[in-house]
Design a protein around this nucleic acid. Structure first.
Length: 114
DNA sequence: GGTATGACTGATC
DNA sequence: AGATCAGCCATAC
């Protein structure tokens, strides 16, 4: 599959994520049959814009450790993502400095397949 | 074509 | 539990 299909597949998978749940880049890649393309999942999401239709709940995608990947100290991306998750009822642990993490034990969504 | 980079992961220390 | 390292692969330069 080429990159366009890959993006589309990623978006579709992300839309499968139930509310109040989060999953990891690596898991999405695994569901797509490419366990080693975790980085490119992030690439695909980065390519995403707020105007995309139908909307993709990209904020439900975090790293496998449960931490929200920051896109730069000066950016508000991680902060916005954490807010969006909290707005959905997900407990986001905000420690000192604004480190955002999610309890994967309670909110992790890791099905073997879709 | 080689090198660096990235919204990553898993193993190891 | 936090830090490091190696592996991965499409993109950009």
């Amino acid at each position: 599959m080429d990159s366009a299909e890959f993006h589309a597949a990623v978006y579709e998978t992300v839309r499968q994520i139930p509310a109040q749940k989060v999953t990891s880049y690596g898991h999405i890649a695994r569901l797509l049959g490419m366990p080693n393309h975790s980085r490119h999942v992030g690439q695909a999401l980065k390519f995403l814009t707020p105007g995309t239709t139908p909307p993709v709940p990209w904020h439900r995608v975090i790293s496998s450790s449960g931490a929200i990947s920051s896109r730069g100290p000066g950016t508000d991306g991680a902060r916005r993502q954490g807010d969006a998750l909290e707005a959905e009822g997900v407990v986001v642990t905000a420690g000192r400095g604004g480190e955002l993490k999610v309890d994967l034990g309670s909110y992790g969504w890791f099905p073997d397949s879709v």
